[in-house]
C-alpha cells in the first residue's frame, strides 16, 4: 500500500513552492488518493516567505495543516530555520543549498542538499529551481509513480504555457538524477 505523506514546501514568494505542492497534490488526484493542499495566506504571502502543507493518504485527511512533516522541501534560510525542528523522526529534508548557507542536520532526519537555484541557472532553466527540488524529493520519498508525476506536470501547466513543459521535464530529471 502506498505511504502516507505529510509534506511542507517552503520558500520565498515567487520561488514556486505553492506550484510544486500543487504538482504533488495533482499526482495524488491522478492516483485517486485522499489528499489536501493548504497554503499559508498570512502577511507572509505579500512579498515574504510562502509555504504550503500537502497531505497524501489512503484515509480521509484530518487536519490539512501539517505540523510535523515527514518531508520538507525548503528553499530559503528563514523557512529552513522555521521548519527544520518540526520535521518528524525519520523524515526527509530537501534543502536548496544555493539559498540556504547555514544548514543544520538534526538527529534522526535525513537532510539532502542540492544547489537547485545554481543548477537552474547553469542549465538554462531559470525559475525552475522548485521543479529541480521536486525531482529530488520524488527520488527520495517516491510520493507517486514516475508516469503520474509526468501526467501531473502536463495537467498543471496551462494550455497557453505548453512550451514550458519540456524545460519542466528537464528540471525534474535534473533533480531526480542529482
Amino acid at each position: 500500500m502506498p505511504k502516507t505523506h505529510n509534506i511542507i514546501l517552503a520558500g520565498f514568494g515567487g520561488q514556486g513552492v505553492l506550484f510544486a505542492g500543487k504538482l504533488i497534490a495533482t499526482a495524488g488526484l491522478i492516483e485517486d488518493r485522499e489528499l489536501s493542499w493548504l497554503p499559508s495566506y498570512g502577511p507572509e504571502m505579500r512579498g515574504g516567505t510562502a509555504n504550503c502543507s500537502v497531505c497524501l493518504s489512503d484515509e480521509p485527511i484530518g487536519s490539512p495543516l501539517v505540523l510535523e512533516p515527514d518531508a520538507l522541501l525548503v528553499m530559503n534560510q528563514p523557512s529552513f530555520d522555521k521548519f527544520i525542528e518540526t520535521v518528524a523522526k525519520g523524515g526527509v529534508v530537501i534543502a536548496d543549498s544555493t539559498m540556504i548557507p547555514k544548514i543544520t542536520m538534526p538527529f534522526d532526519v535525513s537532510v539532502y542538499t542540492i544547489p537547485a537555484t545554481q543548477l537552474s541557472e547553469e542549465h538554462d532553466l531559470k525559475g525552475l529551481a522548485n521543479i529541480i527540488m521536486l525531482g529530488k524529493l520524488f527520488k527520495e520519498i517516491d510520493f507517486c509513480s514516475a508516469e503520474t508525476l509526468d501526467a501531473a506536470l502536463v495537467k498543471c501547466i496551462p494550455a497557453k504555457k505548453q512550451h514550458l513543459l519540456e524545460p519542466n521535464r528537464k528540471a525534474l530529471a535534473l533533480g531526480m538524477d542529482y
Binding site: 497534490a25 495524488g28 489528499l35 489536501s36 493542499w37 493548504l38 497554503p39 485527511i61 490539512p64
Partner: peptide
C-alpha cells in the same frame, strides 16, 4: 472558514 476556503482537495 479560512482553512476550508484556501485549501485544495479533490
Amino acid at each position: 472558514d479560512g482553512m476550508l476556503g484556501q485549501m485544495m482537495e479533490p
